[in-house]
Design a protein around this nucleic acid. Structure first.
Lengths: 205, 205
DNA sequence: AAAATATTAGCTCGGTCGTGCTATAAAGGC
DNA sequence: GCCTTTATAGCACGACCGAGCTAATATTTT
């Protein structure tokens, strides 16, 4: 038998290389050659783990989605399983703030998310994943608003479905703008806008 | 002298070809060859009007910006120079709705806007234009909210600057989502979300 | 020790790219 | 009619691309 290599770990490492190249030079430069260089592998090695370029891209997008999802889930659990001591309002704000590019890590993730989302427009193989990410966001917004309303934090007259869409759009829009112009949208401003929106929801309209 | 050709018209025609190709197959396929084919010209002809590929791209993005801007300005004038008979509230909603992908034309423009905006992340030459577009959006939101407040349509306690950012983010986010999943975000829903936001602003919070 | 095989490495092909460069065609001034 | 200027057309080069394919390497099991 040959050298034992954990195939999933390798695939993830290669996906990380794709993300690094894409973050630095754009998705269009994430060629097999550049990615192999970035990962410190030969081009043939990369092709051993991915059938073709498309599979590499779809896997990488799912990897990005998984990474963001993991980060969100951590906060979501804290919110959805309150231990009594946690401030629901603050926990909600923290959860939603997790989507915003508040530090360099999340700024880079946001930029990558935007790149893949835009690419999904003309690359059919990426569309399912992009659609899933958007659906997941909407679902999470619905859960958050629904539970907040049940807990009495939001008025019962609220249209949860509509407000979920509005909240999701606000987060996506803020992320888009802050990713493009980080200087004009410092973390403080982003949190301020989010807080304002939550306050408005709380007040009923 | 040679055959007389209006150079600006030609440049715009070529830019239109870029937009067509980009809308159909993505910005990365807007090569000189594909664009020349789309425009019905030889590759050399295209290069006669554009020094290099970068200039073609920057010009096309500005052209797109100009086209969207023109459409907006038409509505903006109607709102900012009211003739007494116009309903300010409805005119405002119409103006803001002009940003949303409510029909096929605007859906395509939105997709192109998104593609260029995403590309601006890693293409320095596109950044100034992207930044301008975003700044213009914010400025317009500020004007609309400011005038609406002066006209008594919005509470005086409102933080215009903050609400402008929030409104701009909402529009960008809605556009992003509706462009990616047109089926899930039909025009009716988009207008509903916009109306809800304006109602909330009106109610003071 | 040897055989088996997952892994790595790299050559080759056809294709597309931007761009430098040259050649032809058209049209108004002399 | 000729000449200058502008527009159009297209060849040629080097670079990069994805993918098919083969060979070498390394390591665990037999």
């Amino acid at each position: 038998m040959p050298k034992i290599v954990d195939p999933v770990a390798r695939r993830r490492a290669v996906a990380q290389a794709v993300l690094s190249v894409a973050a630095r030079h754009g998705l269009e430069h994430a060629s097999l050659r550049n990615v192999a260089d970035e990962a410190g592998l030969a081009i043939g090695s990369v092709r051993h783990y991915f059938a073709d370029h498309d599979e590499l891209m779809t896997f990488t997008m799912r990897e990005l989605s998984r990474r963001i999802g993991d980060r969100i889930r951590t906060h979501a659990e804290r919110l959805l399983t309150p231990d009594g001591r946690t401030d629901r309002r603050a926990a909600t704000e923290e959860l939603l703030a997790e989507f915003l590019p508040l530090d360099e890590t999340r700024r880079q993730e946001s930029a990558l998310w935007l790149a893949f989302t835009a690419a999904a427009h003309t690359r059919p193989e990426l569309r399912p994943c992009a659609a899933e990410m958007q659906a997941d966001l909407h679902t999470l917004m619905t859960r958050v608003l629904h539970e907040a309303r049940c807990a009495g934090g939001l008025p019962g007259s609220m249209d949860v479905e509509l407000e979920s869409t509005r909240l999701a759009a606000l987060l996506d829009g803020l992320t888009l703008q802050a990713t493009l112009l980080p200087d004009r949208y410092p973390p403080k401003l982003l949190r301020q806008v989010l807080r304002r929106h939550l306050d408005a929801l709380r007040a009923g309209s």
